[in-house]
Design a protein around this nucleic acid. Structure first.
Lengths: 187, 187
DNA sequence: TTAAACACTTTACATATGATAAGAAATTAC
DNA sequence: GTAATTTCTTATCATATGTAAAGTGTTTAA
């Protein structure tokens, strides 16, 4: 629990009572490299925090595997389109390395919000941050070339390049592995 | 205020006391077609609700005007990257038709959250919804062709096509006006 | 009402990215 | 440690979209 509490308190500090309540609905879970944390078709009732390792959210379009996002140590992961709508997700979460996650039960978390406004505020801010990141991702996909997107990733998140297979990065950037290889070749 | 209260109560119903508190920090403002509601470089301290009309968020990349999003009647608009970070925005909000907005002072709203948890919950849910929409927009930009994106817009938001100039829609779809015209021609 | 400005389309050509296939390199599994 | 997979690169060709320029149609404003 220490890693998550340390991360949380930078975003919004919560009372020790709230820390305790949060700890009670958390559970540590481990996944081997390549394993699905949650499968396609499953309704998301869990918010994960990455303690160690890397995960990705992915889905299939025309039988092609597409990576929607990566999350590394000290980040939250959830399939928002399912968690916030209650519908089954068309996406899966997969461990890219051997990974340790802290699983937070979302139903119990949302109930805690009634009695612990500081937790609701914390998660509001977490969502705000995710939202801001997502909007800037749209900007990048809307009018940057594939090469610009690759170079920005290299500049801002070079750890991704070091720890994630290129074929996963390609679809994250919205291009094919062949195209990514070509872009890398001309540098 | 009626339109905003009606809209809000579908998302999360709030006490009449909270309605009153919210009304106090709202102000109705009007903008003529083409006018900027908020300019580039301005730090966003306002959340708008569109009472009537249409607005867009736009910015410039290499001197090209790019529309990030449209918002019609009964929707909230804000430049999240500025509102949630406190930094000056690189984007502007513009009225596409003559538009009436309800302006909510964000500093005062965030203060209200301390005494009105139902308001915080309401706005948490509004952000969750925006987040879900934004994630699905990424999906669309990541691996749909320009034609698929156009046809999806036609299917899901045909009102956009009816009320917004095509050149604005083109950049929203991530393509040039010429390319959009070509796609429309082949149907 | 007319000129000016703006929005949209069409054409021709350039270019980035996609698709396919084959080979090289790296990783995994026995 | 070697074979079998998987990942990455390279090459070729096809195609979607970009760029530029010109023409038509529609608003806007004097």
């Amino acid at each position: 629990m220490n890693s998550i509490l340390r991360h949380i308190n930078v975003i919004h500090s919560i009372s020790s009572e709230s820390e305790k309540a949060l700890a009670e609905i958390c559970k540590e879970v481990k996944f081997l490299k390549g394993k699905d944390v949650q499968a396609i078709g499953h309704t998301c009732k869990t918010i994960y925090f990455v303690k160690s390792g890397v995960v990705r959210i992915y889905y299939f379009k025309n039988a092609t595997d597409i990576t929607e996002s990566f999350e590394f140590e000290n980040a939250f992961v959830a399939r928002a389109e399912s968690l916030f709508t209650g519908k089954p997700s068309k996406k899966a979460i997969q461990a890219i390395e051997d990974t340790i996650l802290i699983a937070i039960d979302s139903d119990r978390l949302f109930k805690l919000f009634d009695s612990h406004p500081d937790l609701e505020r914390l998660f509001r801010k977490i969502i705000e941050n995710s939202y801001v990141n997502t909007v800037s991702r749209i900007e990048s996909l809307q009018f940057n070339t594939a090469e610009e997107r690759y170079l920005n990733l290299l500049k801002d998140h070079s750890n991704v390049l070091k720890r994630v297979p290129l074929k996963l990065i390609a679809s994250y950037l919205g291009i094919t592995p062949v195209s990514l290889s070509r872009i890398r070749g001309t540098k």
